[in-house]
Structure formats: C-alpha cells, structure tokens
Write a protein that binds this DNA or RNA. Structure first.
Length: 427
RNA sequence: GUGAGUGUAGCUCAAUUGGUUAGAGCACUGGAUUGUGGUUCCAGGGGUUGAGGGUUCAAGUCCCUUCACUCACCCCA
C-alpha cells in the first residue's frame, strides 16, 4: 500500500513555491516599511492557550483542534500528560510569547509579524485546508485608532504590491466591554421575540453567541433580523469616536472600504474595529485576510491590560487569487554545460562546481547524451547560455559558448573560460 | 459533522445497446547525414480502468462495499 499524505495536508511543488516566495518577500518588504519585525513562535502550544483566548464555545476550540496528550517522561502512576494543540491560529501564540518574555517592560509598543502553518480539522474544500498557512501581524501596546488605520493601510499596500485589485475591504466595530454587554442584551431581547422564525442554528446561537445571528445567511434569518438593533448604533461615545477616526483616516489616505454593521468575527477576543478583505473569485471561502482589535486578550492571558490589534491572511487563498491573474515569472538557469566524451565531462565537472560556488546556476549531465538531446534539455531548463565542450575543443584548448536567445556562439580558450562565464553572469 | 458529484497513461479527456489486444492530444525518451535548442516529421516507453467483491459466455461500462478526491452546507484565513 502506497503511503499518501494526510487528508487536507498538501505538498507545494516547484512551480507554485515561487509564488509563495514572492508573496512572502513582498510581505516582509511591506511589513518592514511599517516597522513590523518578525517573530517565530512554536507550532505546538498548550491546549489551554487556545481555549482561553479563542473562546471555549467557538467551532475552532470545540471541534477543529488537533489536540493530543504529551508523554510525560517523569510520569509515575496516575500522572497526567500535558494537553498540547497544533496551533489553529497565530495571535494567541504571539501574545503568549509577548507576555511570557515581558516584552512590554522593555518597550511599550511592539509591532510583530509571523508566517507559517496553522491546523484546523475541518472538511477540506476549495480554499480550506487542514494545514494552511497564514501571514499575520500584531500591534501590541497601542489602543489608538491610528494604529488600526495603519494595519489597514499596511494590508492595502501589500495587496497593491502584489498587483491585486481584489480583495475588497469591509469594516465594522463591535464595541468594547463598556457598551457591548448592553447591546448584546438588547439584541438578545430582540432575537428572543422572534426565536420561532430563526433557523435551528441561530436558535442555538442565541444563548451562546447571539451576535452571530446577524451574519447568518438563511433567508428567514436575514428577514427576521432586518430591523435588529445595529451594532453601530449601540456604540458608546468612546467607541464611536474611535471608529469615526478610523474611517476618517481611511478616507484621507484614499483606501476604499464598505461599512458592514453585520460583520461579526468568529473569535471571541475581538472588540471595536474589525475588518475582512473578501473576494468573490474564490467560491465560498471568500475571506482572504481578516482581523481586528483585541484589547482584553493580553490581560486574559495573564498579562497587564495592554491593547492590541492585528490580522491574519490565508496564503493559499492569496496565491489562488494571484494564479487567477496569471502572475507567474519564468525563472531559468544561467548556464547549461553540454559535453561530448568522458574527458570533456571530467574537465567540466570541477569547473561546474566552481561556478556554482559563485552563485551561478549550472546544470550538467552525468551520462553521455547526444548534443541535440543536451541542447533540448538546455532549452527546457530555460538556460540562458550553453557551454559546448567536446574532444575537438579540448584538443584545441577552447570551448564554445552559445547564447541561447541570440544564437550567437563564440570560442573561448579554456584558460579564460571561468572568468568569461563569471563576467557573463555579472552582466 | 451533513449533502452532492467524480474516479480510465504523469496531465486533459475518448471508448457504440456490456463485445476482439482500452485510444488520442500534451508531456517524457530517442531519431530525421558522424556534434547544435524552440517549429515540423517519425518512432518508442508508460495502464491491475482507485481498490475489493458480485451478475454475465463476456465488465472501463451493470450491482454492492470501500477508499480517495472535488464542490457545497457549516465554519473561517
């Protein structure tokens, strides 16, 4: 029986990896411009970190996490191992690291970004994998609306740097610990009155997370909640002022957005500004990037009361978008070394090594093939030049260098070949 | 977790009402005056028709089971 990969876990092969590298390079460039620095955190964390931060009643924690019990080396009878979980998202780990290292004592404001695999055990479909990859950023220590806007501008710049016109931005405000309980109570009362007309899902949501009923897609629920109290009307003065500033800053920097008062984020820790960048091009998994403010999270993870705001984006979804726009670069090899006869090969082999040491991309065969077949291979590899070395050339002490684009060939003495090829690459 | 759809060469797909040795294009390998790429021409390699069982003189085709993948619901990046 052939061993296969795990369902929902994908290999990414050459040809596609280049797109990933390009995305990551652009992210690093844009994020640095906004003074975000990379942090690398573990892929495995204690389960409690996620259940405490993401929320006990969220789908992620309830049924999507890869959790197992670690072996305890010193375990005696009855000793319990520690429960560990493959991270389903990045924010919790970043905040944990931030609190654990007490970074706030060294520097009150920290702007961090991360990239890497996340794991959620969902049914795979287009744009949804069990191992998927996120690039995310967190700004810790700032509660002002300017940093919210900065995060949105950063994403805007990033998408622009990739040449993408999709996805589009939607924003909302969820209020804070001052005003949300009141709003929640109002909404709850409203929903209770109409409980019978709601879908089964929403009836269950009423007690657990009533806000979610707002973005239910069931026609009946959309109709029933048409006149529900709006989140934006329920904001306290401070939240309203904060959100107004975010919108003003987006206007002044000419970043397009739509206001979506029904947008509710899935994770419990969000408050105030929340946002999603969505596209219609990817089927039902439309969110490419999403995030928001999470002012209570650091404290919830045993840190001081420090505000934060951040986002994550799905790299698979992003590269799917790029693929739709047919963005692909050619790549190619600097040099192909074609030889005829074993003496030529053995002369070429050490030279190939020296060229590679200088960063020149070179390919050479080990087994004898016709020159035609070697030329074909050079073409296939998109080699910019081919060195031809046979018995005749070896006898005359020279080699033929062919430029594949111009088809021009020149003879170069073997003594000068290495410097000539190095110089060629430099140009 | 629920539902639907699809499994034939590395890829995209053919194969009459069940009927000879399962084909084509692309890709791969080689060749077309002895040592020169892309275009063209010729040739070649490559399949347990996802797997297992059943019906039948005969199964890629019909039935059952199973596995895998895909899409949607749900959820989310």
């Amino acid at each position: 029986m052939k061993i296969t990969s795990i369902k929902g876990f994908a290999d990414i092969f050459p040809g596609e990896v280049e797109t990933w590298q390009w995305v990551e390079a652009q992210a690093r460039r844009v994020f640095s411009a906004y003074n975000f620095a990379e942090i690398r955190i573990p892929i495995l964390e204690k389960t409690e970190l996620f259940s405490r931060s993401i929320g006990e009643t969220t789908d992620i924690v309830e049924k999507e996490m890869y959790t197992f019990e670690d072996r305890d080396a010193r375990a005696g009878a009855g000793a319990e191992g520690t429960k560990l979980t493959l991270r389903p998202e990045g924010t919790a780990g970043v905040v944990r690291a931030y609190v654990e290292a007490e970074l706030y004592k060294i520097e009150p404001v920290r702007k961090l970004y991360y990239l890497g695999p996340m794991f959620r055990r969902e049914r795979p479909q287009k744009g949804r994998m069990r191992q998927f990859h996120q690039i995310g950023a967190e700004a810790l220590g700032r509660g002002d609306p300017y940093i919210d806007a900065e995060i949105l501008l950063l994403l805007h710049d990033f998408f622009q740097s990739l040449g993408l016109t999709e996805p589009a931005l939607q924003i909302n405000s969820l209020g804070c610990s001052e005003c949300r309980p009141q709003y929640r109570a109002n909404l709850l009362a409203f929903l209770k009155e109409r409980e019978a007309t709601l879908c089964g899902n929403c009836q269950r949501r009423i007690d657990r997370n009533p806000l979610r009923a707002l973005d239910c897609k069931e026609p009946g629920c959309i109709d029933a909640t048409k006149d529900a109290p709006s989140l934006l009307d329920g904001l306290c003065a401070v939240c309203a002022e904060h959100f107004a500033t975010v919108q003003r800053l987006l206007g002044e920097t000419k970043v397009n957005f739509t206001l979506n008062p029904r947008m509710v984020r899935g994770l419990d820790y969000y408050c105030r500004t929340t946002f999603e960048w969505t596209t219609k091009l990817l089927g039902s998994q439309s969110a490419v990037a999403a995030g928001g403010r999470y002012d209570g999270l650091v404290e919830q993870l045993s840190g001081p009361p420090i505000p934060g705001v951040g986002f994550a984006m799905g790299v698979e979804r992003l590269t799917m978008l790029l693929r739709l726009q047919e963005r692909s670069d050619a790549g190619g090899l600097d040099l192909y070394f074609a030889w005829i006869g074993a003496p030529a090969r053995d002369w070429a082999f050490p030279l190939t090594h020296r060229l590679r040491q200088q960063g020149i991309g070179v390919e050479i065969e080990a087994e004898s093939r016709s020159l035609k077949s070697q030329m074909r291979r050079a073409d296939k590899l998109k080699a910019r030049a081919v060195v031809i070395l046979g018995d005749d050339e070896l006898a005359k002490g020279l080699a033929v260098v062919r430029d594949m684009a111009s088809k021009q060939q020149q003879e170069i003495s073997l003594d000068n070949l290495e410097t000539a090829l190095t110089a060629r690459k430099a140009n």
